[in-house]
Design a binder for these strands. Structure first.
Lengths: 118, 118
DNA sequence: TTGCTGTTTCGATGTTTGTCGAATCAGCTC
DNA sequence: GAGCTGATTCGACAAACATCGAAACAGCAA
C-alpha cells in the first residue's frame, strides 16, 4: 500500500493498450486481449442488450428479458458474457439485478477504431 | 414530418445507421446488421490482420501470411470474412493480391461505440 | 506449351457457441 | 419457517466456426 507512486505496470487488462488500428498494427498478445471484447459484441442479442444498457443509466434484467424472443437463461448467459468482457457491471438489489455499462470500456474500443478524418 | 423531401436512401447498409449505443438502443434489425461487423473483428487473427491492413496503405497477402502461425488457406479465409463484412477490399495485381481498409466502415463502428466524455 | 508461385476454394474435423428446460440460488412476504 | 418471484447455473444438443491438407485457379516466365 505504500508504493503507489510507481508504475501502473502490468496493465494486462484489455484495450487500454494500443494506438488506433489505423495507426499501428496490434501485437499478437494485444489482439488476443482485445478480440474477446469484439466477440462480446458480435452476437445480435448481446449487441442489443449492450445498447439497451448503455443508453440508460441502469437496466433491470427484469425489463431486458421481455424485450427478446429468447429464454431468461439465454439472456442471463449473454449478460454474463458482456460482464466477463468488462463491458457491463451488475448489481443485485433485493430481488432484482441491475446492469450498468462501463463507459471507459466502450471509449477504449471506440478509440481503437478511430480513423483520422482524412 | 415523416416524409423527407427526398429519399433517405434505402440504407439497408450496415452501421451507417444508428446513433451511438450509449445514446439510443439498437433495433433488432440494426443489431442484426451490425453484429457481423463485430464478429469479423472478434477473432484474434482477423483483428490483427485488420490492424496490419489498416495501419498501412495497402497490404500484400504475401506479406500478411508470413506474420501468423496459421496456414495460407486460413489467412485467406479470414481475409474473406473481413472482406464480406465490408471492412477491407482486395485488389489483384498480377500474381499478388493487395488489401486495403475501408476507413468509413471503421469510422462508423467507432462512432457507434462513442461515449460523450462524461 | 509447360512449369512455377501466390492465392483461393473445397472437404473434413475438432472446438466453440447459442439455445433450451430443469434445477438451483437469492431475497422478499406471508 | 413455507411459498413465491427473479436471476443464475447446469447439462445437453444442434449449428457455426477456425483450422488444416489437397486441389483448383490466376498469372507470370521460360
Amino acid at each position: 500500500m505504500s508504493k503507489q507512486a510507481s508504475i501502473p505496470v502490468t496493465d494486462t487488462n484489455a484495450a487500454s493498450c494500443c494506438p488506433p488500428l489505423a495507426v499501428q498494427a496490434l501485437s499478437p498478445a494485444d489482439a488476443a486481449d482485445i478480440a474477446p471484447l469484439f466477440k462480446a459484441l458480435s452476437d445480435p442479442v448481446r449487441l442489443r442488450l449492450m445498447s439497451m444498457i448503455a443508453s440508460i443509466d441502469e437496466a433491470c434484467v427484469c425489463d431486458l428479458t421481455g424485450a427478446f424472443d429468447v429464454s431468461a437463461p439465454t439472456i442471463s448467459h449473454h449478460l454474463k458474457v458482456l460482464r466477463e468482457a468488462g463491458l457491463i457491471v451488475g448489481d443485485r438489489r433485493a430481488t432484482w439485478v441491475y446492469y450498468r455499462a462501463d463507459p471507459d470500456a466502450l471509449r477504449r474500443l471506440a478509440a481503437l477504431l478511430q480513423v483520422h478524418p482524412d
